[in-house]
Design a protein around this nucleic acid. Structure first.
Lengths: 145, 145
DNA sequence: GATAAAGTCTACTACTTCTATAGTCTTTTT
DNA sequence: AAAAAGACTATAGAAGTAGTAGACTTTATC
């Protein structure tokens, strides 16, 4: 399951993406608008800023804005910042590889192979879906339905 | 992340799959062989028995065996028993659908649409990979490497 | 240069879920 | 009757998640 942290992160990025062009958005406003606990959002934004996805400005008139194009921010990268590995087992992770405690021989592990396939399938979606895509899809809904 | 419960479940099914044809396997033996805490395994096997995947027999000479062909037990079904939903957000789940608390309008939610795609990609693997496949893949490794 | 408006950073608490263990009961075989 | 198994329920400890608190720093503006 996706953590709330990650959902909040995506929502915040989407909101900031829509706000592009305007003056930066304050945490408080963003929190109210997206119904995210303020202090929790604060931490999340900080993480994403430190990862280079957001630009922040202190002081009066300050706030947050995107540091990249919405089309260049992929969900896979966000998930990794907020939730860590995308793979369902550590030994199948690309960026957070770790040996599984339960695993004796990784080379012949049938479970591992399957979950590498799952990881690849998941990444095929998440590494190709950007914040811009999410925004685009928000309004699509009416036509599909 | 996959829970230990699920990993243990898969390992147990694989072991029982290999044991097919022989007399049923006792929990204690299975636990020792697969290095799974005995009482924890007990619960897991019980869940899978109640879900119809295992056959159990009490008393001397009793134990556990598969109640289906290894080729008819799919990982997706096991995951659902032990870990619940496969989708990363409840509102994108096929079998455990639930509204997301953070979501206002599900129809236009761009996040939901993306995670339905992820779910479909994941299921394409997990709903087509059986215990028999996992067993087959265990020995494949040598040739691939 | 003082004040206020922002973000930064660290620590902590409450809650929930996961992992594991314990113990008692039931069934079946010998 | 005794022993060998599984069935079932309760509980404890550990880890992770969500959220809160508060003191600190930077910047704009008057």
């Amino acid at each position: 399951m996706l953590s709330k942290k990650t959902k909040y992160a995506i929502k915040a990025l989407v909101a900031l993406g829509k706000n592009a062009g305007n003056p930066p958005m304050q945490i408080v406003r963003l929190a109210e608008q997206e119904m995210i606990p303020r202090k929790f959002l604060e931490q999340i934004l900080l993480d994403m800023r430190n990862a280079g996805y957001l630009y922040s400005k202190k002081g009066a008139g300050g706030g947050y804005s995107l540091n990249k194009e919405p089309g260049d921010i992929y969900l896979a990268d966000i998930l990794r910042i907020t939730d860590g590995p995308i793979a369902m087992v550590p030994c199948a992770s690309l960026k957070f590889y770790r040996k599984c405690d339960e695993c004796h021989d990784e080379v012949t592990c049938g479970i591992r192979k399957t979950f590498i396939d799952v990881r690849d399938a998941t990444l095929k979606v998440l590494a190709q879906t950007s914040i811009a895509d999410v925004i685009a899809r928000e309004t699509d809904g009416h036509f599909i339905e």
